[in-house]
């Protein structure tokens, strides 16, 4: 399999070039957010308040890492199941979000929104948190510290491996994969 190297945040060209099934290595800045953080971000948008990070072009990673040991950048840090964020994702894409990293299938509404707002969804390997933590070079809590593992962190990643599930054309690797291997 060929692997594309891309940088985060994502620009229009990066997003347009990604196709469902592409393996990528991501280098750059991404932000962690899961259930509780998505709820907080949504409330801030609705109240027209400023967000803890620039959403335009942003890539969010659905992860609640385990605590880091002294001297570690971060603990185990693999993806969590994405459907729990479906209720919030469209609004974030309307405000410029370009990439989401998680694992598991997205709702038809979110897949539609990815087409409309030109954003992509990528999967990292669930249950590979020790391995993925090695690609995270810096981690800093920037908002909602009270949420513990659900706080928003700014991460600097290097060659973080992921695979494109949904591209801006509405393709879905999960559907394609099953079709190909069903007996």
């Amino acid at each position: 399999m060929s692997t594309k190297k891309i940088s985060a945040p994502f620009d229009e060209k990066t997003v347009a070039d990604l196709k469902s099934g592409d393996s990528v290595l991501i280098t750059g800045t991404i932000y962690t957010a899961r259930d509780a953080a998505h709820k907080c971000l949504t409330e801030l948008i609705e109240q027209k308040k400023s967000l803890p990070f620039e959403l335009r072009g942003a890539v969010v990673y659905y992860v609640g890492p385990s605590p880091e040991k002294p001297g570690q950048v971060i603990g185990s840090a693999g993806p969590t199941t994405s459907y729990r964020m479906d209720a919030y994702s469209t609004l974030l894409m309307q405000h410029g979000l370009k990439g989401m990293i998680g694992k598991g299938k997205r709702s038809p509404a979110v897949i539609d929104a990815m087409k409309n707002y030109r954003a992509v969804y990528l999967a990292a390997t669930g249950g590979a948190g020790a391995l993925l933590s090695k690609c995270i070079k810096k981690s800093e809590i920037i908002a909602f510290e009270e949420l513990g593992p659900e706080a928003v962190r700014r991460l600097e990643v290097e060659n973080f491996p992921a695979i494109v599930i949904n591209d801006i054309h509405g393709n879905d690797l999960y559907d394609e994969g099953i079709k190909k291997y069903a007996r």
Partner: peptide, 12 residues
């Protein structure tokens, strides 16, 4: 035989 495969990417 469903074809879900490792991480749901399709497979045996």
């Amino acid at each position: 035989n469903i074809g879900i495969g490792p991480q749901g990417l399709g497979g045996r």
